[in-house]
Deep mutational scan, measured.
Amino acid sequence: LNLKQAKEEAIKELVDAGIAEKYIKLIANAKTVEGVWTLKDEILTFTV
């Protein structure tokens, strides 16, 4: 999975969960695949 694909998957998951745009922007700015997954997990843990 490359960075672009990771971001697309994570953003789709966050949108489906009804997460606010400000958190989705954090994913869009992530620099690594690991960073994308870590941010996604943290956002889902603390906002859902």
Rank of each mutant, 00 (worst) to 15 (best):
K12M: 06
K25V: 12
D16R: 14
E34R: 05
K7I: 13
T45N: 15
A10K: 00
K12I: 05
D41K: 09
V36E: 01
K7Q: 10
L26N: 03
N2E: 13
V15T: 13
I24T: 06
K31N: 08
L1E: 10
Y23S: 02
K40H: 08
D41F: 10
V15K: 13
I27P: 00
T45C: 14
D16N: 13
A28L: 14
L39Q: 04
K4L: 12
K31V: 11
K4Y: 08
K40I: 10
I27Q: 00
T32W: 03
Q5A: 10
K7L: 06
E9F: 12
V36W: 01
L14Q: 00
T38M: 14
T47I: 14
A30D: 01
G18S: 04
D41M: 13
A6S: 05
V15C: 12
A30M: 10
A6Q: 04
V36C: 02
K31I: 09
E34V: 06
N2M: 13
I11R: 05
V36N: 01
E21D: 10
G18W: 03
V15N: 08
L3P: 01
W37K: 15
F46V: 10
E21V: 08
E9G: 06
E21A: 09
T38C: 15
E13C: 13
K40Y: 14
L14E: 00
E34S: 06
K12P: 00
E9D: 12
E13H: 08
A28N: 12
A17V: 05
N29T: 10
K31H: 07
K22N: 07
A30P: 02
K12D: 03
E8C: 11
I19D: 01
I27K: 00
V15L: 14
L1A: 09
I24Y: 09
K22E: 12
Y23N: 02
K7C: 05
L26M: 11
E21F: 08
E8T: 09
K7D: 00
A30L: 07
A20H: 09
A20M: 06
L1T: 09
L44E: 03
L14G: 00
L1H: 11
L14R: 00
I24H: 07
K31L: 10
D16S: 11
A6Y: 04
N29V: 07
Q5P: 01
A30F: 02
K12E: 04
I27T: 00
K7S: 02
D41Q: 12
V33M: 06
L1Y: 09
F46I: 13
A20L: 08
K22F: 10
L3E: 01
K25Q: 12
Y23V: 03
A20Y: 04
K25F: 09
L14C: 05
E34W: 06
N29E: 12
L39C: 07
K25S: 11
Y23K: 02
A28D: 11
W37T: 12
V36G: 00
I24V: 07
E34L: 08
A17H: 09
A30I: 04
V33G: 01
K4D: 10
W37I: 12
L39W: 03
T38R: 15
L44W: 05
K40F: 15
T47W: 15
T38S: 11
T32M: 01
K12T: 05
T32V: 01
L1M: 13
K40A: 06
V48C: 14
L44I: 07
E9V: 14
A6P: 01
Y23R: 02
L14T: 01
E8P: 01
L39R: 03
A28Y: 15
L3I: 07
N2R: 12
A10T: 04
V33L: 07
I19M: 06
Y23L: 07
L14F: 03
E8H: 07
E8I: 11
Y23Q: 02
D41A: 11
A30Y: 01
T32S: 08
E9Y: 10
K31D: 11
T38W: 15
A17P: 01
L26W: 09
V33I: 11
A17F: 08
D16W: 08
A6W: 04
T47G: 15
A20K: 07
K22L: 07
I43T: 01
A6K: 03
G35H: 13
K7R: 07
A17T: 03
K12H: 05
E34K: 08
L44D: 02
L1R: 10
A20Q: 10
V48N: 12
T47A: 15
A6C: 06
L26G: 04
T45D: 11
A20N: 09
N29Y: 12
A28F: 11
L3Q: 01
L39Y: 04
I24P: 00
V36S: 01
E42T: 08
L26Q: 06
V33D: 01
W37M: 14
V15G: 05
A6T: 05
L44K: 04
V36P: 01
I43R: 00
I43N: 00
K31A: 10
T38A: 15
G18N: 05
A30V: 06
T47Y: 15
L26E: 04
K25T: 08
I24E: 02
Y23G: 02
N2S: 13
N2I: 11
V33Y: 03
V36Q: 01
G35M: 15
T47R: 10
L44Y: 06
I27R: 00
E13T: 08
I27Y: 00
T38P: 02
I24D: 01
L3F: 03
I19R: 02
V48D: 13
A28S: 10
A6F: 04
L39H: 02
L3W: 01
I11P: 00
D41L: 09
N2A: 14
L39F: 04
E8Y: 07
K7N: 01
E8D: 09
K31G: 06
W37G: 07
W37E: 10
L1D: 12
K40D: 01
T38Q: 14
E21Y: 09
A10I: 04
A30T: 04
F46W: 13
N29M: 13
K40T: 07
A17I: 07
I27F: 04
V36D: 00
I43A: 06
A10P: 00
I19G: 02
V48K: 15
E13N: 06
K40E: 02
I19V: 15
V15R: 15
Q5T: 08
I43E: 01
I11M: 09
T32A: 02
N2L: 14
K25W: 08
T45R: 15
L39G: 02
K4M: 10
L14K: 00
V48A: 14
Q5M: 12
A10C: 07
L3M: 03
I19H: 03
A17E: 04
E9P: 00
T32L: 02
L44V: 04
A20T: 07
T47M: 15
E42F: 14
A10W: 02
F46Y: 12
A28M: 15
T45V: 08
K22D: 08
K40P: 00
G18I: 03
L1G: 09
V33H: 03
E8G: 05
L3T: 03
D41Y: 12
